[in-house]
Design a binder for these strands. Structure first.
Length: 730
DNA sequence: AGCACGCCGACT
DNA sequence: GTCGGCGTGCTC
C-alpha cells in the first residue's frame, strides 16, 4: 500500500535523511520546507521536511506535529543546502541550522516575535492644550504608524500624555510586530550616482547586459585599491532592482560598517527599495526579524557577512561578493563552508549574475578567469587621483641598529606629523612581545593546552595563549635555572605603541587589534576617530588594512613582514602579497601622494616587489608555477583531515591507521601524512593531520565516500574533522 | 547531539 | 548491597 512519506532532516549530527509517515490529517498541510516534530529514538526532535513522496510506510514512525503554516525554506534554498551538506561532508541538519537565524533550527531557544504598541493619528484638531501633547502629535503625524520605541527616542516619559491623547480620540493604539532593526531610524540623505570612468562604465554595462539575460553569468571584478568598485556594485544593483529582481551583497564581517550600509540605504531607500542587513553584531532578535522580512519577500537588497549567502531571497538576480579573496568567507569550525564558493553555486542554481570583486583576487578566482569560467572585468585606474602610492622596501639587513622601526620610516613619520597628515603602522602580531625568554638558559613559556609560546601582554601583566583562553602571570624567576633575567623578545602591537609614544611624545596614537576592539562598537569608535582626524598614528594588526578608506592617511609602514612570508603554509606568498597590497593601497587615496615603507629582510621577494608596484598580474605569473609543480590549489584540490583527542598515543595510532587505509584505496589521490598539526596540541587535544591532494575533484569525492565508512571504526575518544578546500591548516 | 544500556569503584 | 562514573551504540 502506498502512502505519503516525508524525508526529514533531523536536528542531529547525522548525514542521512529519515523517513516518516505523514498522518492522514496532515496530508493537506504538509509541504517541503516546513518544520515538524518527530519521534526520534527515545526522544522527540525538530526536523525539516526536505522531500515528500509516495511509498510504503512499513517500519516508519509518524510525524507528530507540523510546526509551520508557511515553509521556512524554499525549494531553491533546500537545493543549495543539500548540495552544501554533500559537498562539505557535513550533517544536513547542522547545515540547515547554520543557514537559519538562531532559534529557528534548534530544539531549545525559541526567538520570540515581539510586539509593541503602535500609535496612529486620528485627528489633530482641536489642538490639545499640553505642549508635550502637541509635540507628540507632531511626531506621530510624520508617519502612518509610529511605534512606541520611536516615540521613546524623543520623549523620555511619554506615557501619561499618550494615554490622554488616546482617551481624547486623537490617537489610536494597536499592537504591531516589532522590527528590531538597529539602522531603522538613522537619518538618511539621498545619494546620487557618481559619474563613472570608462572602465567602470564597461563593467556596469557587462553586468547589466547579463542581468537582462536572466541566466548564470559569473564575473571577476579586478579593480586596484581605490578604483571605485563600490560604485560599480551600486549601479549594478540598481539595474537588478529595475528588472524586479533582488540583490544579495556579501561583505567580510569587518567591512560591514554603518558607513557601507548607509551608502546603500542612501542610494536605494529614497527610491522605495527595502534593505536588510545580516551580520554577527545583531542580537538574535534583530537577526531573526531581518531574516523574517526577507522570507516574507519584503526586502529587495540584502547586505550581509558570510552566512548571508543563505538569505531566503526568492528571486535573486545579482550576487556580489566583495573582497572575494578574504579568508573570512571560509567558516573555520563546524560546517566548514566557503561563502564565496557557495555564492557561485547558488548563482548557478538560480540563474543569477554574480560579481566577485577584489583588488587582489584569490589565486583561485584569477585562475578561473584565466580558464574562462569567470569573465574578468578590470579597473586599472584609481578614480580620484590616478596615482598609486609610492612604495619603498627597506632592507633590514642593511640597517645598522636592530630597532623596531628603521630610520627612513622614523623620518617619514616625523614628516607626516609635521604636515598634520595621518599614518598607519601594520604589525601583524598583537600583544607586547611574542614570547618571554630567560636570557640565562633560553627557557621560554608555553601554553599547557596548546603547543605554542605564550604572548606577553604588558598592560594586563599576563602571558596569554592566542589559541585558547589560557592566561598566567609572568614569572619573575626562571623555573628552570632560577635566574632573574627574563626578557620580552620580539615586538607586538602593544610594544610598538609604547615605542612610538616615546618616540613621538606629542602625537595622538591609537592601537587597533583584537585586544582593543573586543568590546562591541570599539572597532567603530577607533575608525570614527581616525576619520575625524583625532588620531595621528594608527597602529594595528591586519584589521587596519581591511574595510576602510581613511582619506587623511598618506603614510603606511609595514613591520614584521618576514613573519608573513615565512608562515608555514603554501599560501604564505599569496597572503603576504594580498595584505601588503591592500595596506599599501590605504595610503594617499584622496591626495594621490601616498608613501609606503615595508621593512623586511627579503626585499627581493616577489610578494613584496609585486605588492610595491600593485602588480597583480606579475604576482600571479610568478606564484602559479609553484602551485602547478606541487599540485596545490588552484591547480589541484585539497581535503584536510584532522584527528584530535585527549590521548596522544591513541590519536597518533588512529591517524596512522586511517592514513594507511586511505593510502591502500587511493586512486589518483595523494595521501600525505599523518603528521602532527602545526598546532600539535590545541585546547588540550592532541592533533594529527592527513592531507588528501588530487588534480581531479571526482577522485577526492569517491575517496570521501570511502572515508565515510572508514570513520565509523574510529573510537569515540578520537574526533575526525573533514575540511574540504581548506583555507588554513593549523 | 541526546539518551539509553552496561559494566566497574566508593558510599549510606 | 546501590549510586553514578562515562564508554559505545542507535536514532526512520
Amino acid at each position: 500500500m502506498s502512502e505519503l512519506i516525508a524525508d526529514i532532516a533531523v536536528n542531529a549530527p547525522l548525514k542521512q535523511l529519515f523517513s516518516y509517515l505523514v498522518p492522514a490529517e496532515m496530508v493537506e498541510k504538509v509541504a517541503v520546507g516546513k518544520r515538524v516534530k518527530v519521534p526520534f529514538g527515545r526522544r522527540t526532535s525538530t526536523g525539516f521536511i526536505l522531500l515528500t513522496r509516495q511509498g510504503s510506510s512499513k517500519g516508519l514512525k509518524k510525524i507528530s506535529t507540523l510546526l509551520d503554516e508557511e515553509p521556512l525554506l524554499t525549494p531553491e534554498l533546500i537545493t543549495l543546502l543539500r548540495w552544501a551538506a554533500d559537498y562539505y561532508c557535513h550533517p544536513i541538519g547542522q547545515v540547515i541550522r547554520n543557514a537559519l537565524p538562531a532559534g529557528l533550527g534548534s530544539d531549545k531557544t525559541q526567538t520570540r516575535i515581539l510586539y509593541e504598541p503602535v500609535y496612529r493619528l486620528l485627528k489633530r484638531e482641536p489642538l490639545p492644550r499640553g505642549q508635550k501633547q502637541q509635540e507628540l502629535l507632531k511626531l506621530i503625524a510624520e508617519e502612518e504608524k509610529t511605534p512606541l520605541s520611536r516615540i521613546r527616542q524623543e520623549f523620555s516619559t511619554p506615557h501619561s500624555s499618550l494615554n490622554r491623547l488616546v482617551e481624547q480620540g486623537y490617537l489610536e493604539v494597536c499592537e504591531q510586530e516589532i522590527q528590531r532593526d538597529p539602522f531603522l531610524y538613522e537619518k538618511i540623505t539621498e545619494d546620487k550616482c557618481l559619474t563613472l570612468n570608462n572602465d567602470q562604465k564597461n563593467a556596469v554595462k557587462s553586468v547589466s547586459d547579463s542581468l537582462e539575460k536572466n541566466s548564470f553569468s559569473p564575473y571577476l571584478l579586478h579593480g586596484v585599491t581605490g578604483s571605485g568598485k563600490t560604485e560599480v556594485y551600486l549601479q549594478s544593483v540598481e539595474k537588478c532592482l529595475n528588472l524586479k529582481r533582488q540583490a544579495l551583497i556579501l561583505v567580510p564581517e569587518i567591512a560591514l560598517t554603518p558607513q557601507l550600509v548607509a551608502r546603500f540605504r542612501a542610494r536605494f531607500e529614497p527610491k522605495g527599495s527595502k534593505l536588510a542587513v545580516l551580520h554577527s553584531g545583531l542580537s538574535d532578535g534583530e537577526r531573526y526579524d531581518a531574516w523574517r522580512r526577507i522570507n516574507r519577500n519584503e526586502v529587495d537588497i540584502v547586505i550581509g557577512a558570510r552566512s548571508a549567502i543563505f538569505a531566503p531571497l526568492s528571486r535573486p538576480g545579482l550576487i556580489i561578493v566583495d573582497e572575494e579573496h578574504e579568508t573570512s568567507y571560509k567558516q573555520s569550525e563546524g560546517f566548514r563552508y566557503n561563502a564565496r564558493d557557495l555564492a557561485l553555486v547558488r548563482a548557478q542554481q538560480q540563474g543569477c549574475t554574480i560579481v566577485l570583486g577584489s583588488a587582489t583576487p584569490s589565486l583561485a578566482s584569477y585562475y578561473r578567469s584565466e580558464q574562462g569560467s569567470l569573465q574578468r572585468l578590470e579597473l586599472p585606474q584609481r578614480v580620484h587621483t590616478g596615482n598609486l602610492p609610492q612604495v619603498e622596501l627597506i632592507n633590514l639587513a642593511e640597517e645598522e641598529s636592530s630597532q623596531t622601526l628603521a630610520n627612513p620610516l622614523i623620518e617619514a613619520l616625523q614628516n607626516t606629523l609635521e604636515k598634520r597628515e595621518q599614518a598607519m603602522l601594520l604589525l601583524n602580531r598583537r600583544g607586547f612581545a611574542p614570547f618571554l625568554l630567560c636570557t640565562d638558559c633560553g627557557t621560554s613559556f608555553h601554553c599547557p593546552n596548546c603547543e605554542i609560546t605564550l604572548t606577553f601582554h604588558q598592560r594586563e601583566r599576563l602571558l596569554r595563549c592566542h589559541y585558547c583562553d589560557y592566561a598566567e602571570p609572568p614569572k619573575e624567576v626562571c623555573p628552570n635555572c632560577n635566574g632573574g633575567n627574563i626578557e620580552p623578545e620580539g615586538a607586538g602591537t602593544e610594544r610598538l605603541e609604547q615605542e612610538i609614544t616615546e618616540l613621538f611624545p606629542g602625537a595622538r596614537i591609537a592601537r587597533m587589534d583584537r585586544d582593543t576592539t573586543s568590546r562591541k562598537g570599539a572597532h567603530q569608535r577607533i575608525v570614527d576617530k581616525m576619520m575625524r582626524r583625532e588620531i595621528d598614528i594608527l597602529i594595528g594588526t591586519q584589521m587596519i588594512a581591511k574595510g576602510h578608506d581613511f582619506p587623511g592617511v598618506t603614510l603606511v609602514g609595514v613591520l614584521g613582514t618576514d613573519n608573513l612570508l615565512n608562515f608555514p603554509d603554501f599560501r604564505a606568498a599569496e597572503r603576504s602579497f594580498t595584505l601588503l597590497t591592500q595596506v599599501a593601497g590605504r595610503a594617499g587615496r584622496a591626495t594621490g601622494k601616498g608613501k609606503v615603507f615595508i621593512q623586511t629582510y627579503n626585499p627581493e621577494h616577489y610578494s613584496l616587489t609585486c605588492a610595491a608596484e600593485q602588480n597583480y598580474a606579475d604576482f600571479y605569473q610568478l606564484e602559479l608555477p609553484f602551485r602547478q609543480e606541487l599540485g596545490y590549489p588552484p591547480c589541484g584540490h585539497l581535503v584536510h583531515l584532522v584527528l584530535a583527542g585527549n590521548q596522544p598515543q591513541q590519536v597518533k595510532q588512529q591517524a596512522e591507521q586511517l592514513a594507511e587505509q586511505l593510502f591502500s584505496i587511493a586512486t589518483n589521490v595523494e595521501v600525505l601524512g599523518p603528521s602532527p598539526c602545526p598546532l600539535a596540541k590545541l585546547r588540550g587535544k592532541t592533533r594529527y593531520q592527513i592531507l588528501l591532494k588530487s588534480a581531479a575533484r571526482s577522485s577526492l569525492r569517491s575517496m570521501l565516500a570511502d572515508l565515510e565508512a572508514l570513520s565509523k571504526n574510529i573510537p569515540g575518544g578520537v574526533g575526525l574533522s573533514i575540511d574540504i578546500d581548506p583555507v588554513d591548516m593549523l
